[in-house]
């Protein structure tokens, strides 16, 4: 076997290798596109109706659930989201995230104690969401809530993710 040494062949081989690399690059664009597809595009925030205002007593904190902002036809039950909703006064509602800021586990509200407790690592929050004890680095996040046409509504938003450095603020 004699290797191709002529400059022209050499050049063509290099061109073909470069061309193959370029083709690979082209294919990788839709590949990466599919991987990050759910992260692309503008995220909607939607007001979801929870129920009539009168379903909630002043001072009461209840677990409510609603559909998230981007349900897909194949989401099934996974398009649901929950929040702890409190009627803090006649015309005011506060909605707390159910996700502990430590590692995201679902917190439970203990009504008589006025505390949120986390089952995973024992984080505790006061009834205003401020940190009471345990490992959570920041207070329990809130969703926006409002009264519209005598119904309570919650604004959908991403699952709160605690990021590095947030605990310092």
């Amino acid at each position: 076997m004699e290797e191709m040494k002529e400059t022209r062949r050499n050049f063509i081989v290099k061109l073909l290798m470069g061309g193959s690399a370029f083709a690979g690059l082209l294919v990788s664009i839709p590949f990466v596109g599919a991987l990050i597809e759910p992260l692309l595009g503008k995220k909607n925030e939607v007001w979801r109706v929870i129920g009539p205002v009168d379903d909630f007593k002043v001072g009461e904190t209840k677990l409510v659930n609603f559909e998230n902002a981007d349900p897909l036809p194949w989401s099934g039950v996974t398009d649901k989201t929950a929040a702890w909703l409190r009627r803090s006064s006649e015309n005011e509602f506060i909605a707390f995230s159910v996700n502990c800021t430590h590692l995201g586990c679902p917190v439970r509200y203990i009504n008589d104690a006025g505390l949120f407790l986390c089952p995973c690592h024992g984080g505790v929050y006061n009834n205003d969401g401020s940190n009471a004890a345990g490992p959570p680095p920041i207070p329990l996040p809130r969703y926006k809530a409002r009264i519209n046409n005598n119904k309570v509504e919650i604004l959908t938003s991403p699952i709160p993710i605690t990021t590095l450095g947030e605990e310092a603020s």
């Binding site: 991987l35 990050i36 597809e37 759910p38 992260l39 995220k43 998230n68 902002a69 981007d70 349900p71 897909l72 036809p73 194949w74 989401s75 099934g76 996974t78 398009d79 989201t81 996700n99 430590h102 590692l103 995201g104 586990c105 995973c120 938003s157 991403p158 699952i159 993710i161 605690t162 990021t163 590095l164």
Partner: peptide
């Protein structure tokens, strides 16, 4: 969600990494 929270601690791209893991900004069809 717990996995996503841990990914969230990655410096600078934490939130993005968390959303990449669960396929969006919340659990769902993706």
């Amino acid at each position: 969600i717990v996995g996503a929270q841990q990914a969230g601690r990655v410096p600078l791209i934490g939130t993005w990494a968390a959303h990449f893991l669960i396929g969006g900004d919340t659990i769902g069809g993706a």
